[in-house]
Design a binder for these strands. Structure first.
Lengths: 247, 247
DNA sequence: CGCCTGTTTGACTCGCGTCAATGAAAGTGG
DNA sequence: CCACTTTCATTGACGCGAGTCAAACAGGCG
């Protein structure tokens, strides 16, 4: 396997090495194959195209590209963004290992957004036609896929609420907690995070400026809630973060 | 059919009368049955439960309710909202005739939001298990349903971008244009609209206060772009509204 | 070493939220 | 049918949080 798959600084990219088959991937519990029998997993294995390494800043697909596949992130991280009329990009999500990208392309057979690697990433390509065909005889897979899409809708709506009504501090808190949860889901630390994205990306995603993001992180650190060291963040008091949202 | 189905002031509720079967419904072009053969439509007909009238302010489902069905709006209008920790509600969408509600419930078999009628509405209930079963042998239906969900994701992301970055005026413009498009899709006027929701609902949805919504509408009227009369709105210069978003 | 990108910090500005009051419309009960 | 209440909408005065502008700093890389 190509060594480029594994950025030297990333701590959680071991999946890239071992996962030649879904059944062996340590992300299988949170990715597509969830709840499949082993026979079924083999069939899914057969249609998935692996080993597509993506360098930092390389595009997985671009807005307007014909839609042919959805993609599972095996290692690394992606951001997904829309380019609006003015040419500015709006980030609508970050995708971490075990998560599925590209579901918004089904609507009209073209990708409605662009996906780009935040760091060197390993991706599983899942051709959609084949997947759809497979669901003919695999109701569980079909159901799981629908659930993934439904989850995406729920998540996006959470974000809508967040952006519509919450302060800068609350938005940052939600992002940190989200990254924490997703880290825990991969059996990694829930309190020590490495942010794969820049402050600019965070601001873009949360509808804030770089300056506000920076100031907010500084303030949270001054209040003893987090410790920030460049892109490393430690959540010293996750409860305090949660409490900010209860109000 | 019960006369309560038809609010006297609504101008576009004739579908409620004629649509006893999907094939006869004048919304069939934009609802689920799109792209189905007539045999298939009959089968879909068989699982759909109709004639569920919903009074203003009555709930179609509530957050946390077990998820059993998705719903097509046949007449009237719904709003969908989340209740956040503090007990405040955040509206995440308005649903007009021909649109499908409840897709976010698939993820974990409970509704992740609440849906309530803005005015007396007619609803088609589509039991999800039966629908899913039907898609076994109807790939077109399956595809169309996936497209509906995918569209929902795309739309929500548009909204995310909007709330994250745009001014009050731009948000209002987007909403007006969206309502205009959806009105045109139902072969109604694209320039004369009747808002089914209150100013408060609009503000809640767009992340603005009632006052800001009111002031913004007033200003748009003063600039000759729209004419507002209570809940009736005429778009005098739709191009001007579009132009606001290009920048 | 010097360039470039990303991050932090400070001073100033402004759009929108908040508070408050008034008016219009719709629903309610006698 | 009319008084009363309640809800919704509009308008004004004021303050704050986050955007803007600007400058300095750190780190990575050729």
């Amino acid at each position: 396997m190509d060594a480029r798959f594994i950025p030297s600084k990333a701590s959680d990219n071991s999946a890239a090495c071992s996962a030649v088959r879904c059944g062996d991937c340590r992300l299988s519990g949170i990715c597509l194959p969830l709840a499949l029998e082993s026979d079924d997993i083999d069939q899914l294995d057969n249609i998935i195209q692996r080993g597509r390494p993506l360098q930092r800043n390389a595009h997985l697909y671009r807005e307007g590209d014909p839609f042919t596949s959805v993609y599972a992130v095996r290692a690394g991280a992606l951001k997904v963004y829309h380019s609006s009329d003015g040419g500015r990009e709006h980030i609508t999500g970050f995708y971490l290992p075990g998560e599925i990208v590209g579901l918004d392309g089904i609507a009209d057979n073209r990708h409605g957004s662009s996906a780009v690697a935040l760091e060197t990433s390993a991706i599983c390509e899942i051709p959609f036609e084949a997947l759809d065909k497979l669901t003919d005889r695999m109701p569980k897979l079909r159901r799981h896929f629908l659930q993934l899409m439904s989850r995406e809708i729920s998540d996006d709506r959470q974000l809508v609420s967040l952006l519509g009504r919450n302060s800068a501090t609350e938005r940052i808190a939600v992002l940190l907690l989200s990254l924490s949860n997703r880290s825990a889901r991969r059996h990694l630390s829930a309190t020590r995070l490495r942010l794969p994205m820049s402050r600019g990306d965070i601001g873009n995603y949360l509808g804030l400026t770089v300056e506000t993001v920076s100031r907010t992180l500084t303030r949270l650190q001054r209040d003893g809630i987090i410790v920030v060291d460049n892109r490393e963040v430690e959540l010293c008091d996750p409860q305090a973060l949660s409490d900010m949202l209860a109000a």
